[in-house]
Write a protein that binds this DNA or RNA. Structure first.
Lengths: 110, 110
DNA sequence: CTAACGTGCAACCAAATGGTTGTAGATATG
DNA sequence: CATATCTACAACCATTTGGTTGCACGTTAG
């Protein structure tokens, strides 16, 4: 199983984007429907510009995409990116299982 | 399905710890065996202190634990934390699938 | 006992992050 | 046309991050 087709920088951006509660919340909403940036911003205490930056971070991590509808941008989540992140973690877990199997094999020799 | 027993801060630390190539590499080695901090540090160009800080970040994220052996600290990965991270992402994916199912249901009405 | 080793931590620095306000452009509305 | 709305972006600021060097402390080796 190849580690991935993502560059280290892309993996960095992916996990970094997920490492903020506001961004995870935005992602959750983007997963359950289409929302304009203004509609998303109205959910949080911070300024519109701050939310717009968070959306930009999610966009650079390929977690969401924006599509124009008139004067607004609709933000929607890209489930493939999430699947990629999950797959990365599964590969780390697989490494662990491999280690456990090796230890088991050693113990079985006794 | 409850989102998780982790606080938002703990989730932040988890993903943040994974958002650095050096730390992911350290984690990989910690998953495949026990290594002292010095042994890990010898693998990278940066100073010992820098690597020691990276290990501390992984430790605060509960991704690794350290156990003393004489004068050295052996770093080993905690697979449960990885499983937690993977489960978090699975829940986001589940949200997405729920949305797809809802759209499918709407289309089926026609 | 003394010297070397492994670790942790403080102080410092440059760059990135997460927030703010203000401005400007594109699109819709009256 | 004039105005309001939605978005993007620049400039600025405080804090955090990721690196450095230097030092102190506990443990092992000679």
């Amino acid at each position: 199983m190849v580690v991935d087709m993502l560059s280290p920088d892309e993996v960095d951006r992916l996990f970094r984007a997920l490492a903020d509660a506001t961004r995870r919340d935005i992602l959750t909403h983007a997963l359950t429907g289409e929302h304009s940036v203004t509609a998303l911003a109205s959910r949080y205490e911070m300024s519109f510009a701050a939310v717009q930056k968070h959306v930009a971070v999610l966009e650079r991590a390929s977690l969401v995409v924006k599509t124009r509808r008139g004067r607004e941008q609709l933000v929607t989540a890209d489930p493939d990116a999430l699947a990629t992140a999950r797959r990365l973690l599964e590969q780390y877990e697989a490494l662990w299982r491999h280690r456990v199997a090796a230890i088991d094999a050693l113990l079985a020799e006794d």
